[in-house]
Structures are given as C-alpha cells and as structure tokens.
Design a protein around this nucleic acid. Structure first.
Lengths: 181, 181
DNA sequence: CTAACTGCAAACCATTTGCATCATT
DNA sequence: AATGATGCAAATGGTTTGCAGTTAG
C-alpha cells in the first residue's frame, strides 16, 4: 500500500510543526490532543498526493495504528482543515471528497484530464491577482477560491476518441504532482 | 412556490429551441422524447435561478405535472446537460448538486458569501483567456472550468463577526443574479 | 411490435451521530 | 474527577438501480 518512506529529517520536522499547529487549534478550543488524533494528523501530513478518508484509514492501518476508525478520521477532518494541515483538493465527482496536505505548501489549483483522470497542479500569480480583483470589484473579501480546469491531456488527445472511455467511474486516477514551468 | 410567470413569447421560443436541441441529442442516441421528459426539460429551462432536483420536482408538481418522479428527473439530468440545457452551478457543499439553466445563456462563474450564502454571478474575459492559456501551457485542451470564489460580502463584513453564523447549514441562500459592472 | 421510459421501492455509499466506554488534562 | 475522544453501529440523505408495466417510434 502507500509507503511511509524514510523519514527525511526535514519532513519529520515539518510534521512536528504541523502537529504543534494542531495543538494550538485544539488548545484554543479546549479540545484535547490524543494519540489517535496525532496518528491521523501525522498520516495526513505524510501522505503523498491526494487521498480520501478511506485511503487515510488504510494508510494508518498499514502504519500499525490498528484501530483508526473512519468515524474518528471524519471527526478530525474539520480540525485539521482549520489548523491548515490539509485541504479539500478536487471538486468531488460523486465519489467522496479528496484531500491533500497543505501545511507549509503553497496554494495551487488543478488541471484534470477528463479522459484518463490525470491531475496536474499549477500555480498562477496572475490568476490569483485576478481573483482578488474580481472579488474586490463585487465588494467581497476573498477567503477561498475553488478553481479546477478540465480537459483532455496531450496523451489522451493523441491516443483517442473524443469521448472519455466508458465505464470508468471511481477511477483512482494517477496523479502527476508538479509540472512544467 | 416557484412561479411559472407569464410566458413571454421570447422565452417560450427559447424553450422551444431548447427542446429541439434535446430532441437532437435523443435522436442521436436512439432515445425517445416523452411527455414527462419534455415537461422536465421545460421546467428546467423555465426555472429562475439555481435549483436542486427536488426543487424541480416541486416546480413540476406545482405546474400540474402530477407524477414527475425524482428518479426520472435524475435520469434525465445527464441528457439535459449533454444537450446544454442545464449545468451544475455551484460546487456542492454537502447538500446536493445545484443546477441552473444554461441554454443560450453565457458562461459565468460565481462569488459566494460565506456569511449569508449570497451568490453573485460574474463574468471575466480576462479570466477565461487566462484559463485557456494555462490549460494550453500544460498540453490540455480545455473543456470545462470550475471556478468559484468565496468570501464575505459587503453587508456581512459590515454587519458582522469574523466567523459565519453557526448552525446555518442547508441554507437555501438568496441569490442575486447579475451584478455591478 | 420492440426498445425506451416511468414509477416505485430497495439499494448504495459517503458522511454523521448516539451512546457507552476509555483517555487526557 | 471532569470533559473530551473513540469505536461501533445505526441513522442520514442524496443519488442510483432493478423491476414490472406503459408508451413512443
């Protein structure tokens, strides 16, 4: 299953900072830290790429945390989001929300191939500036932006028909983080 | 409930064109038009503002179509989308997809107030051009874009605290179509 | 006539919640 | 000790599906 690779010192430290951040949020609300909570947060911070709740649970089980229950993970999601550890990643396509670690990582948006499901991250200063401007023009103070572009990637266009391959639902598509330029 | 206002001739004709468009899609797939199907499409085209499946069903009932079943509406959604009659409007927040008529209407995106739920439409050529450019840069042929900005509207910022009012889920928020500039 | 469509009820599935019990502060 | 956190199972709620009967082409 997913791999808990070597714990590069840097990454381990980032995780430690993330956990501290979470503790702050908890303290601020008179909530408690717990071993399960910590394991979940640790897993979320360490997870490479996008994940769903059940992915995280599997990862936890694989990591030796025997009883990490779905319900518990669900209950900790809002806290981790508030602490800035994770973020919803893609616009849900019917099969559950996908998250990604966001702690000490810069904002980015996604391009998604409607053919093979490939996801590419990109970042555009121009885009963000434009979004702020649009919000301001309408009297809004921007808090969050959802931006996802969909189309056919090079490979799918070259290879294929104009319609996405049939019967390909819940395709745990491959992800290519970071891309050209 | 929702109002089926006077049938301005222009609107009635647009609906007729929409239905023709739907017939084309149906014919192309060897599917059949039916009275129920037509009533559903008609309702979707006539509906003012955003709606959910159950809104449409209520609207249909109110319009005298006694047995317009949810399942049937669900089954016709993909067809209506393919025919370009409707489109998913907002990014689902947990409580079901929201649609809006899109036939012979120009693309637009939404700004959503995290305080009161107010939704404002806006349109930006610059933004669309930028999106196409980003897609192209990554070898994608753009097919669709999801873009939603969230923040606090003028009124909410003036009026209020920094956190959205508690316990305000499934708020059928008011919508202000079309806005300044 | 045949293939699609429709109502209805049951099935699905991601997410939420109630409750008794365990752990942190 | 007191208040939260957790596992588990049951409840939710939007959406999908199987089936038997109806209807369009």
């Amino acid at each position: 299953m997913g791999g808990d690779r070597r714990g590069s010192a840097a990454k381990e430290q980032a995780i430690a900072r993330g956990l501290d951040r979470l503790r702050e949020v908890l303290r601020a609300r008179n909530l408690k830290m717990s071993s399960v909570r910590e394991a979940i947060a640790r897993a979320a911070l360490a997870y490479e790429g996008h994940f769903r709740v059940d992915d995280l649970v599997r990862y936890l089980h694989a990591s030796g945390v025997r009883e990490a229950h779905m319900a518990t993970v669900y209950r900790s999601l809002p806290l981790m989001i508030e602490a800035g550890l994770i973020q919803p990643a893609l616009v849900p396509n019917g099969d559950g929300q996908v998250y990604e670690a966001s702690f000490e990582r810069e904002r980015h948006d996604h391009l998604r191939c409607t053919g093979c499901g490939l996801v590419v991250e990109y970042k555009s200063e121009t885009l963000e500036a434009l979004q702020r401007e649009i919000a301001a023009r309408h009297g809004f103070e921007l808090e969050e932006q959802v931006h996802e572009l969909r189309g056919r990637c090079r490979k799918c266009r070259r290879a294929g028909a104009s319609t996405p391959p049939p019967g390909s639902r819940r395709s745990r598509a491959r992800t290519a983080e970071r891309s050209p330029r």
